[in-house]
Nucleic acid binder design. Structure first.
Lengths: 325, 325
DNA sequence: TTGTATGCGTTATCAG
DNA sequence: CTGATAACGCATACAA
């Protein structure tokens, strides 16, 4: 709701001129005399006039707002991404509307449609773990909605993506574990649906191979809701440590997974790195505080967010002064 | 922008009826025949009609969106708060527009005005550390904008607030430190401007007094940008540990302060709790992972967020069917 | 029950 | 240079 009752009409009435004149003065049109302009501007300020963005949106068919859908806000990585997005968007005068998929496909669909129906000018999204079907986004994309994927991307839609070198991250981390003497390296990853998972696991595999180590199926674990439900991680760790031949290292492919595994190991009294070495993705402060330091893979989350919104606004603006959708 | 060109007019034209008829059918008005309603609904679905929320907002003078301003998104506590807000708001069909003050007064003013000008129906805010003057919010409040304060509140505006018992938190934590043998308990707090700081430091003081311990000025430190700038925390810790009589315990009054102090201690090789005991607020996973466990004070951030949005929407709705502002 | 006209705040297109 | 008018998409008071 507008808490500034004063409209362009009010200042027009106050000055005894027409609304068009006021509009022109405000928009700094060239077709207006300096005196009237001055007059209008003064009056507008005095009356504390502020333009109504809703009316503007209706007229211009754009809302100067962007939608952001992440799996979960309360997550080190994603909250940093949002930080980057918001900072830059704010400077450019764009609203940032946040929605969470909570890793649920159904929730993601609803979020996407909700935001689309709210007329966002563009969308930044990191896919939910459950999402395997991209129709809901393909539709919008086909209709011309600018979309940028971040971190968890898809090949099925041809648009900008912002990612880090996931393959490289796990490749290097795995190799580091091997250099440190590990041979039985387990990996705990998120859903295979996720692009990040696939790339990261591929890096792990390649590193093993490059070092002549055979991959053992019993050491590779995927978890669906590892980011949300802690129990799943616990179960996997338990399984790993009841193997006849226990792993001598664990690689984790996400923030929450890393934290979850650390927690579980601590509860079970398994020491890192004495009993098992650990490496993985993390954007929290945790690794810095743990003794001894872990091999961790960080993502420049804030910068990724900034890059995403930057790309998005470029698309939004090129579309504005361009072709019909 | 709307990616659904089809409007109420299109379906009216397609059916050869008037827009009002369509509107009525869609709004399930009683003044319409079941047959035409059926017809319209079918056609609307077929044409994939979705209402334009912007036009609706313009007409009804409400946007079904709420603004949220927090000091920083990438912060355990606040991101959990946002999680709670978003979850509930989404279910009720409200947009959540996020903005960060980054602890800056000037930025907070701009955020507030930005959101207000974007016609949010209500505002949830946690004040910036710098904010001492509340005019920017008083104005909006006077004009009738529903506001709910969360965590960092103010007495100067009479509206709903969502907080935990801050006094109690530090009182208990301090007492626990004392029970464990600490006598020279330092406190590292955020700005005194913040309600949370005042209440938390008060709890500390009261606990000292109740246990017959004299407060030592050299052990009480406030930091302005502790949440954002790490260097400040480091400096305070350094100062504390170059005192002739070093502290035997430290109490921290926020998430970032707790993490920051832990980091600094680790870098300086000061062991917890052997060299110094530690207690404080934290909503991260860190304390659970550290050995030995710290005395920590947790806030039910998600629930606080949910409570805030619940209160806010109540205000928004009572205002809707009520008095003019 | 349905259609017509009006207005929400703004800008663009015409006349004057 | 300025004023009147239409239009954006929708809901509604009023007329039929």
């Amino acid at each position: 709701m507008k808490y500034n009752a004063v409209t362009i009409k009010d200042v027009a009435k106050a000055l005894g001129v027409s609304t068009s004149t006021v509009s022109r003065a405000l928009r700094d049109s060239h077709e207006i005399s300096p005196e009237t302009k001055e007059l209008v501007l003064e009056c507008a300020k005095r009356l504390n006039y502020t333009p109504n963005p809703i009316a503007l949106s209706l007229k211009e068919k754009k809302s100067r707002s962007v939608g952001v859908i992440v799996p979960e806000v309360a997550n080190g990585f994603f909250s940093q991404v949002i930080n980057g997005i918001e900072s830059l968007a704010f400077d450019k005068g764009y609203d940032v509307i946040i929605s969470q998929s909570l890793e649920s496909y159904e929730r993601e669909i609803r979020s996407v449609q909700f935001l689309a129906s709210r007329s966002v000018d563009g969308l930044i999204i990191s896919l939910a773990a459950e999402t395997a079907n991209l129709e809901h986004l393909q539709q919008l994309h086909a209709r011309g909605l600018p979309i940028v994927f971040i971190d968890r991307i898809t090949d099925e839609i041809n648009t900008h993506r912002v990612i880090v070198d996931n393959f490289r991250g796990t490749y290097d981390a795995t190799e580091h574990l091997i250099q440190s003497g590990a041979r039985r390296i387990a990996v705990i990853a998120a859903t295979e649906f996720l692009s990040t998972t696939r790339e990261r696991v591929a890096g792990y595999r390649e590193a093993l191979q490059a070092n002549g180590i055979k991959e053992l199926p019993e050491l590779v674990h995927y978890c669906f809701y590892g980011g949300i439900e802690f129990a799943e991680i616990e179960e996997i760790v338990n399984k790993l440590f009841t193997l006849r031949q226990k792993p001598d290292a664990i690689l984790t492919t996400s923030d929450k997974l890393t934290t979850g595994v650390l927690k579980t190991l601590k509860r079970r009294g398994i020491k890192v790195p004495q009993d098992v070495a650990l490496a993985g993705f993390s954007n929290t402060d945790i690794p810095e505080l743990i003794d001894p330091p872990l091999t961790l893979i960080r993502q420049p989350a804030r910068e990724m967010g900034a890059a995403a919104i930057d790309l998005l606004l470029q698309m939004v603006n090129s579309k504005r002064r361009g072709e019909r959708v």
